[in-house]
């Protein structure tokens, strides 16, 4: 009984970490620019596919491959910033228009990845070992554990940057009121650019680490984006930490529903549940922060 529960919780924690990291990334971008980035999952897809490309096709050792992967996703983030966000903002496009722009960006990234890697499932090699690892009665592996570790690490890193650096203060100020922030000498474009790069970095690393567990293919980005969205609106888009918590909760629910109910309807039921939560709490479970500001 307890063993089964622990396994389920571990699986939920692993997937939830990935959803949480994507939710966290989405929320960071939303916080600085009021834009929902439809291409967030594509960064994770790029992470996984680059891991395959650099470690298998180019047979680099993993630290170099990770570095190369980070270069690729950060370049993609810059392309998104310079090619989509800035031109649209300068033309005073509405936030939802910019959202559609990021969707176009997601389609382009997917389309280009499709050209490079084709539709087949690719074997993404693990960075760490997939060898069984025994902790008490649980059998896991270091790759799985590393995801949970990464989740905690990025959560702390985000907190540190936002609340313990001058730069983070500017980020938060820009999110509250971009115009005032500008008057106070904060260049909001720089902040938005940073948030795109930082969140692409987080999502890319998450994608690289989940690749061996989920399997990599160029279509995986959409599902991750959607799960990230759900995490963010479930927890509350206004705060990166609420969004991350939302991701964990979704991962757990998925695992528990698959374990005790039917895995067939796990996904639709979770979406229905999130819809119901939104009806009761329109800004997410932990989303008072933003509601107050309106």
């Amino acid at each position: 009984m307890l063993i089964k529960l622990s396994y389920l919780l571990l699986a939920g924690l692993t997937n939830g970490s990935v959803y949480g990291l994507i939710g966290l990334s989405l929320s960071i971008i939303y916080g600085s620019s009021r834009v929902i980035n439809f291409a967030q999952g594509e960064f994770a897809m790029l992470g996984a596919m680059c891991a395959f490309f650099f470690m298998v096709s180019a047979s680099l050792p993993w630290p170099l491959a990770m570095l190369a992967m980070i270069v690729v996703v950060v370049l993609a983030a810059l392309a998104l910033d310079y090619g989509i966000y800035r031109p649209l903002v300068r033309r005073r496009a509405a936030p939802l228009t910019i959202m559609i722009g990021t969707l176009a960006g997601a389609i382009i990234l997917y389309g280009l990845a499709f050209v490079v890697w084709g539709p087949e499932q690719k074997f993404v090699p693990p960075v760490l070992s997939l060898e069984p690892l025994r902790i008490g009665f649980l059998i896991t592996n270091s790759q799985q554990l590393s995801l949970i570790g990464l989740f905690i690490f990025f959560l702390m890193l985000t907190w540190y940057i936002l609340y313990r650096t001058r730069f983070g203060l500017s980020v938060r100020a820009t999110g509250v009121n971009p115009r005032t922030a500008l008057l106070m000498g904060i260049r909001s474009e720089r902040i938005v650019q940073f948030s795109f790069m930082f969140s692409a970095f987080i999502s890319g690393v998450a994608g690289m680490m989940i690749g061996p567990l989920l399997g990599g293919n160029v279509g995986m980005g959409l599902l991750l984006t959607v799960k990230g969205f759900m995490a963010a609106i479930f927890g509350g888009l206004g705060s990166p930490f609420a969004a991350a918590a939302g991701g964990l909760a979704i991962g757990m629910m998925e695992a528990l529903m698959a374990g005790y109910g039917t895995s067939l309807y796990a996904e639709p039921s979770i979406f229905v549940f999130i819809l119901m939560v939104l009806i009761v709490r329109p800004y997410g479970l932990l989303g008072d922060y933003e509601a107050e500001r309106r």
């Binding site: 090619g83 989509i84 031109p87 649209l88 033309r91 496009a93 228009t97 559609i100 722009g101 969707l103 176009a104 960006g105 997601a106 389609i107 382009i108 990234l109 997917y110 389309g111 280009l112 499709f114 050209v115 084709g118």
Partner: peptide
Amino acid sequence: GRFETAIYGACILVFLIFLP
């Protein structure tokens, strides 16, 4: 051929920016 999807996305983007 394989570029179809990417071109689809590019079309949306070009219109959003240049022909809103």
